[in-house]
Structure formats: structure tokens, C-alpha cells
Design a protein around this nucleic acid. Structure first.
Length: 482
RNA sequence: CGGGGCGUGGCGCAGUCCGGUAGCGCGUCCGCUUUGGGAGCGGAAGGCCCCGGGUUCGAAUCCCGGCGCCCCGACCA
């Protein structure tokens, strides 16, 4: 990688391409601790952009940030039966502190429901205290058997929202509102189209009543679950005695939700837009939307073009465009082009003596195309280019997903052939039997990604189960998944 | 946890079969020339050859035992 100048191509080995790209773009690196990753500045900058956008959306819908501790008493996890069953096998446990064995071991949070509900129980007494709309940005640890940078690491960064409501419909509405926010973020910021829908019983969060998810299709036609929103019912409220006095004077358990997205989204970003030259970062999430590269021959030209580049950067920054100038000496312009392309910078402006004389800059798009543009009114022009690129990336990703989706296979054989071939999303009838779901998974390696929300459903709804021929209760979407 | 691959200067690798005092490319540092798509020449630094035992006059190489990482599966955001 440091040596071979070209990345492994996606076609040759998608998995190797993904790993190469992350190294080349300096997004992350392997840590001395197995399964953990170091997020490098280029990668962390993307996470910060993501955080900012999502945090604004959460705040705009009345949520507040808080912070709960990393350590959770082991007994807390055990209070909700399904929850403990789901998470116990993958927790890290601290048994010693200050050189002594602890009286009760502490679990490093795999998610924070338990400690949060323990606190909610103290804070919530009356219907007047509701709803509680809370979020936290933090790290969590899940002891995974097999890890991949960004997609699945032992420790990862995420946000987890936790809300408590007086009624079931309010909790349901919250669950869906967040799902909508996630979807909007993924489409409008990441330019990554997602299918939203309900998870089946076997795929839902341990302890939830219902789980909804955002499912994206990667370039290798595997699905990525990019975000989840859970309606927890009164399960945790009952386990942690989160009760409140109702308006009518009675006593009831709160209805709650939880929801999260993680640094996994960065993996989704890579596998949605990346190409054989490297990362392609949608403008709205790019650390640097425009990179100015001065070009010179003599010392005098160097001084002039670098100065012009800095002036241009200042002008663009003033116009709200994230721009930087790469004035490094001793590296030829071509080398800089390759480097910034690998990092996914949306636009590059080459600024040399010829351009300065002509009052233009040579603009190159990361998505292809290079042309001179006038310096006059350049900020407005670049703003338009960035907006157009943002939209074009989304359009292309939607087109790719649709080209790799199969609706209404005529037979079980066609269904299997699709999944065993190039793959992608396949929409088909399902009888709702968990045993059938498991059988399909065993036979095809594909899982039900979700039971799609209304707008994603096929115009013609299937009437029979693709596997058993029995009457279909729903239309489901299958795919092999990360 | 099963299957496969691999641990050798910062990175990628050769050398291992057949033991003989460690090499190549890239990167790094210095100098000069360069700079519109990955620069050239000259010089330099940098290595408990994953760890521990054993065999041998001698081990990167052979034997035994560990550890770690990557990839592919089973389980999971």
C-alpha cells in the first residue's frame, strides 16, 4: 500500500480494497489491542461532521445530551431477561480495581439502557416529568469474534438516545421520528439511500418490543444496517421500576425508546461511494470540500501562486466553503492530486501562472471532469458544484441500489439464484414463521433485512411465501449482510 | 471456535525447501537539479529476522511449544 501505487480494485477483492482504502486515506489504523481501531484525524473529521449534523437534528427535536458512566454493575444487565441473554456473551467485565478484587464486577457498557433506566427511576415521578428526551455520545464495547475497521470493532463510538413517555403511542411516534431523522441524515448528508422498516423477531434488539432499522446496499451488494430505533415498550421500565403518577392519579410504567448510529456509518460511506482511486466523500461531510493546489516553477512563481491560493482559500472560507491550500514544497502537483483523491476531497482547484494570467482556476471534480472556471464569482460557482455533486452521489447510489434489487421473484429458484448470484435486495412474500426465516438463512446466507415501510413496498404485494408457498403475511426484503 | 494465509528496518516483500554472519522496493534524512497527473541523481540513517526452548561449531532458515495479525466461515451494531 505504501509502496504499490494503485489500490486493490473493488472487482479484484472488495474486502482488500476496503482495507487498502482506509490505510491510504489514513482514516484509521489497527491498534495494539486486538479488534480495536485507532481513528486517525482524517477519519475522525468525518465523524465530527456526522456528529454535528445529527446533534443539531436531535436538539431541534427537543433532545438533550447527557453522559452516563462507562461502568455498569453486572447485576444491572441481568435485570431484563432478553437483554442479558443478548449481551452477556459479548461484554467485557472489570473484576479488579485499585489492586483489589471488586465486590461486584463491573461491565463495560455494551449499551446503556440499564444504567440509564436505573437513573430514570430516580428522576421520574409524575406525568409532568415526561417525556424525557435524552441522548449521549460515547464509546461502547462489545467483544466481537470477528472485527473489521469501522464496520465491527470491539470498541466503537456512537450516540445512544433514550426516551421515556407517558403513553405507548408517544413512544411509537418517537421511535419513528428518530428513524426519519436517521434516514434524512443518511440521504441528505451521506448521500446514502436507505430502506427503512421493521426488524423481525429474531433480528430485533434484545429487550425491545420492536426494532426499526435503516438498511443500505453497499457496492458489493451486501446490506449494511446503518442505524436502529427501538420501541422498548415497558420492558425496561418494569425491570427498573420506572413508574410515574398519571394525570388521573394512577401509577403506570413509562414507555421508552432507544436508538443509535455509530462510526459504522463511516464504513457505509466508504462502501457506498468509494472507487478504485480511494474515498469519495460527499461534500456535506467532507473535512475539506475544496483543496487548492498552487503550481509553480520558479521561486517567484511559488511565492505568487501560494499567495493567490491563500487569498482564494480566505475568500471561499468567508463564503462558508471548507477550503484549504496544499502549499507543501518538494512534492509535485501530480502527487498531491493522487493524495487528495484518495482522501476523497470533492473539488480540487489547480492554480498556476497560466490560470492567474487568465483569471481562472482549473477545477477538477472527484467524481470526474476537469475544466477552467473564472475566479470572478468563484465561491458561488463552487457552492453550486458542491450541491450538484451531493445530489449526483445520492442519485447514483439510488440507481445502483435499484439496479441491484429484485422485486417479486416468480419462484423459490429465482429467489435463490439471485442471492447466489450477484445478490442485492430481494423483495418477496414471507409467511412470518421464524423457522422458515432460519431455514432461508441457513440455505442462502441471506437474512431478512426488514419488513419495509410503506413507501418501499412493491406496487404489487406478494400473496404467497417465497419459500413455503403458504399465504404471505408480509413482504420482506432479504440480502446478505455485514 | 473451525479452515486458510502470514509474522524479516516505518510500510510492502525476497531469503526458509537445501543452516554459513540479512537483502530489495517504497518511505525517511541531507545536497543539487526539479514542479500543469505519483520527479531525477548523489549520499546517509535505520533490523533482539514475533516470543521461549531445543538441535548444531554456527539458526531468519531445522525441531518443539507459545503469542499475535489478516482473510474465509459459524455469532453479532
Amino acid at each position: 500500500m505504501a509502496d504499490s501505487k494503485a489500490l486493490t480494485t473493488r472487482e479484484a477483492d472488495f474486502s482488500a480494497w476496503y482495507n487498502d482504502l482506509i490505510q491510504r486515506a489514513q482514516l484509521a489504523d489497527y491498534s495494539p489491542v486486538r479488534g480495536c481501531m485507532v481513528i486517525r484525524p482524517n477519519g475522525y473529521a468525518i465523524w465530527e461532521q456526522m456528529q454535528r449534523a445529527l446533534d443539531d437534528m436531535f436538539k431541534a427535536t427537543g433532545h438533550q445530551n447527557a453522559y452516563f458512566p462507562l461502568f455498569i454493575p453486572q447485576s444491572f444487565l441481568a435485570r431484563e431477561a432478553e437483554h442479558v441473554e443478548g449481551f452477556a456473551p459479548e461484554t467485557a467485565v472489570v473484576t479488579h480495581g485499585g489492586g483489589k478484587e471488586l465486590e461486584e464486577p463491573l461491565v463495560v457498557r455494551p449499551t446503556s439502557e440499564t444504567i440509564i433506566y436505573a437513573m430514570f427511576a430516580k428522576w421520574i415521578q409524575s406525568w409532568r416529568d415526561l417525556p424525557v428526551l435524552m441522548n449521549q455520545w460515547c464509546n461502547v464495547v462489545r467483544w466481537e469474534m470477528r472485527t473489521r475497521l469501522f464496520l465491527r470493532t470491539t470498541e466503537f463510538l456512537w450516540q445512544e438516545g433514550h426516551t421515556a413517555h407517558a403513553t405507548e403511542p408517544e413512544a411509537q411516534a418517537e421511535t419513528l421520528e428518530i428513524l426519519g431523522i436517521y434516514r434524512r441524515f443518511m440521504e441528505e448528508w451521506m448521500a446514502m439511500p436507505v430502506l427503512t422498516g421493521l426488524k423481525t423477531e429474531s433480528e430485533k434488539f434484545a429487550g425491545a418490543l420492536k426494532t426499526y432499522s435503516c438498511e443500505a446496499l453497499m457496492q458489493d451488494n451486501k446490506a449494511l444496517q446503518a442505524g436502529t430505533s427501538h420501541h422498548l415498550g415497558q420492558n425496561f421500565a418494569k425491570a427498573f421500576e420506572v413508574q410515574f403518577q398519571t394525570k388521573e392519579g394512577g401509577l403506570d410504567y413509562v414507555w421508552s425508546t432507544s436508538w443509535g448510529v455509530s462510526t459504522r456509518m463511516i464504513g457505509g460511506l466508504i462502501m457506498t461511494h468509494g472507487d478504485d482511486r480511494g474515498m469519495v466523500c460527499p461534500p456535506r461531510l467532507a473535512q475539506w470540500q475544496v483543496v487548492v493546489i498552487p503550481i509553480w516553477r520558479s521561486d517567484e512563481e511559488q511565492a505568487v501562486t501560494c499567495e493567490a491560493a491563500r487569498t482564494l482559500v480566505a475568500e471561499l472560507s468567508a463564503a462558508g466553503i471548507r477550503a484549504t491550500a496544499d502549499t507543501r514544497d518538494g512534492i509535485k502537483p501530480g502527487a498531491k492530486y493522487f493524495e487528495w483523491e484518495a482522501r476523497g476531497a470533492p473539488l480540487r482547484l489547480e492554480l498556476g501562472p497560466r490560470d492567474l494570467a487568465a483569471g481562472t482556476a482549473m477545477m477538477a471534480r472527484r467524481t470526474g471532469g476537469k475544466e477552467p472556471i473564472p475566479m470572478d464569482g468563484i465561491a458561488a460557482r463552487l457552492r453550486d458544484e458542491l450541491d450538484a455533486m451531493q445530489q449526483a452521489l445520492l442519485d447514483a447510489a439510488i440507481a445502483r441500489r435499484e439496479a441491484n434489487s429484485l422485486r417479486g421473484p416468480k419462484s423459490k429458484e429465482e429467489f435463490i439464484a439471485f442471492l447466489e448470484g450477484d445478490g442485492g435486495f430481494v423483495y418477496a412474500g414471507f409467511c412470518g414463521d421464524p423457522l422458515v426465516e432460519a431455514e432461508i438463512k441457513a440455505a442462502t446466507k441471506a437474512t431478512i433485512r426488514c419488513i419495509p415501510d410503506e413507501e418501499f413496498r412493491s406496487a404489487e404485494q406478494p400473496t404467497t411465501c417465497i419459500w413455503t408457498g403458504r399465504p404471505a403475511t408480509v413482504e420482506a426484503v432479504w440480502a446478505k449482510a455485514y
